[in-house]
Every structure is written in C-alpha cells, then in structure tokens.
Amino acid sequence: MTPLSRRLLLAAPFAAAALGGAGFYTALQRQRTGAYNPRGVPSALIGQAPPAFDLPPVPESGVEPFAAADLRGLGQPALVNFWASWCVPCVIEHPQLMALSRQGVPVFGIAYKDKPADSLTFLRRHGNPFRRLAQDVPGRVAIDWGVYGVPESYLLDAQGIIRWRYAGPITPEVLEQDLRILLARHAA
C-alpha cells in the first residue's frame, strides 16, 4: 500500500463522520422546518380515486349518507373527514370544519367507530359541518382509505382524486397555511 493510499484510508473515518454529521444536521433542520417529520406517514392513496365503499347514515342525523360514487365529479374540491365523538383532538378541529363548510367547501364526514347517539350529541353541541354524513362502525372502510387514527382528513380535487391527506386535527394554522392553498390550487 502506498503512503498516499494509507493516508487516505486513515482519513476515511473523518470523512465518514463529517458526511454523517452533515446528514444529521440536514435532518434536524428539516425537522425544524417541518419538511421532515419522523412520525408523518404519507397516504398510499395520493393521486388515486377513493376506494369503493357505501356507508349507512348516522340514524336521526337528517344528513344524507354517501358512497364512493358521490365523491366523483363534484366540480370543486372536497374534504373527507374521519372523526369520532370520543376523539379529543376532533373537538379542537371542529371549528375549522365549520368554517370550511360555511365557505361552501363540501365536507364529507365519516363517523369512525362511534355510537350514533354520541355522534349526534357531538354535532348538536358543536354544530354540523358535514354536507353528507355516514358512519363506519366496524372501521373497515377507514382501513380501505388507509386511516390510522382520528381525526384524519383527505382532500379530493374537482375530479374526485385524492390529493392530500392530513393525519391529526386541522388546526387554524393547518387551515391557513396548507389547506387554503391546496383548495385554491385544486379549485378548477
């Protein structure tokens, strides 16, 4: 081995450490700006039409239920929201859904593993933002959507293709910083 290659070899650990350090630094920066979230998982359904389903109504809610066909060709973007009355973050999210619905964004609600009576009480107390409301008591349709917790929201474009998924409550910040832009982008 030539002295030069030996020298290079001895410098290799330093190079590796420097590279690793730069990598971790980038990861931390991306974590800070939100570009990298170790817990965030993208939906496998982005760019696809929603899975086939047909769900029953929440009894006595007076709101029509919906099926996959009802999400096709609305001509405007829509939000599908999985929620439950037993879910604490859903309470935080609710005012934002109300605001969206007031602005004319069609919000489709799916009550996930919830007792119908509890769903109704929740909506009576906090208001009903849902244009259509269905219930998924066994949670099977939620699995088809790739839902792993409530609340979880899917943005569909005007053609009914899933464009965005948000796992967790849509806070005012998420509404202003992410959802508004996406709604404008997919308005046509």
């Binding site: 001895l10 650990p13 330093f14 450490a17 350090g21 971790f24």
Partner: peptide, 16 residues
C-alpha cells in the same frame, strides 16, 4: 450533534 461532531470528528481528524 455539535458535541458529537466536535468529539468524534475531532478525534478522527487527529487519527488521520
């Protein structure tokens, strides 16, 4: 990370 790099990269530099 700063500490890690200081000790580890510093040591490797010395090593090199």
């Amino acid at each position: 990370l700063g500490l890690l790099m200081f000790y580890l990269a510093g040591a490797f530099l010395l090593f090199a």
